[in-house]
């Protein structure tokens, strides 16, 4: 982990009419860090991710990703990030190989490079027999692993993962996290949202969102100490409880 900031967010606000989805967010993410972005459903995680990826305009605030400004240099940002959403957006009616060739192609990866990296990937994941299968025929776990591989295929600086592991078994999740660690080692920064508190422990740093605001931020150890909790689950529940008491 270096000290270079790859994501800088200052006073980010996003409103949909009267509803404030992101209320004055301020945080930074360092290069090669695994930054966990936690929060209950509807806390505003996906909204924030979409703003960082340049597919949603913020209402106000300063945001820069990979050194580029979100207002003026969205195209530059898009060249330097990868994105994998809850719906992992591989084309179901294309084969694994065709999906990879398509996405890598539109990121401008050269044909020869695609071929080499594809072979490496096939070997690494052991998917020689899956390569020419339609994505719709793959088990969920494989779809997610391949979607992640596609998201980092063009070697982006940051990759945004929006609940990448929802709905799969613990073993597949573990394998998925192995892929994440590997990506971090190659210098990629990971920005990940998750529901699973055991996954939160894998992150270098966490922020916990409640009702559009960042309620807590720090390493898993720091948070556990601060809230006097056994594990992250406990931290999360305590924060949520505190919130609902304030609302009374």
């Amino acid at each position: 982990m270096s000290n270079e900031n790859i994501i800088e967010v200052e006073n980010l606000v996003k409103k949909f009419g009267d509803f404030t989805a992101n209320d004055n967010l301020t945080f930074t993410v360092k290069k090669s860090e695994i930054f966990g972005f936690l929060g209950a459903n509807g806390a505003g995680k996906t909204t924030a991710i979409k703003i960082l990826c340049g597919i949603l305009f913020p209402t106000s605030g300063k945001v820069s990703v990979a050194g580029f400004d979100i207002y003026k240099e969205r195209d530059k940002i898009k060249e330097n990030i990868g994105y994998m959403s809850q719906g992992f957006s591989l084309y179901e009616d294309l084969t694994v190989k065709e999906n990879i060739e398509f996405y890598a192609g539109i990121y401008g990866v050269k044909r020869k490079v695609i071929k080499t990296r594809l072979n490496e990937l096939v070997e690494k994941l052991g998917i020689a027999d899956l390569k020419n299968k339609f994505v719709r025929d793959l088990p969920l776990g494989w779809k997610q692993k391949i979607a992640f591989s596609v998201a980092i295929f063009h070697k982006p600086k940051v990759v945004f993962l929006d609940e990448p592991t929802s709905g799969v078994d613990p073993i597949t999740r573990r394998q998925f996290w192995d892929l994440i660690y590997e990506a971090v080692e190659s210098g990629i920064t990971i920005f990940v949202t998750t529901h699973y508190m055991d996954e939160a422990e894998y992150c270098d740093r966490l922020s916990i969102m409640v009702d559009g605001r960042i309620e807590a931020m720090g390493t898993p150890t720091e948070l556990k100490t601060k809230y006097n909790a056994k594990n992250m689950d406990d931290v999360f529940v305590k924060l949520a409880r505190k919130q609902s008491e304030e609302n009374k």
Partner: peptide, 9 residues
């Protein structure tokens, strides 16, 4: 898939 397309350059 359009969302994925929209985050690409």
């Amino acid at each position: 898939t359009i969302e994925q397309i929209n985050v690409t350059p």
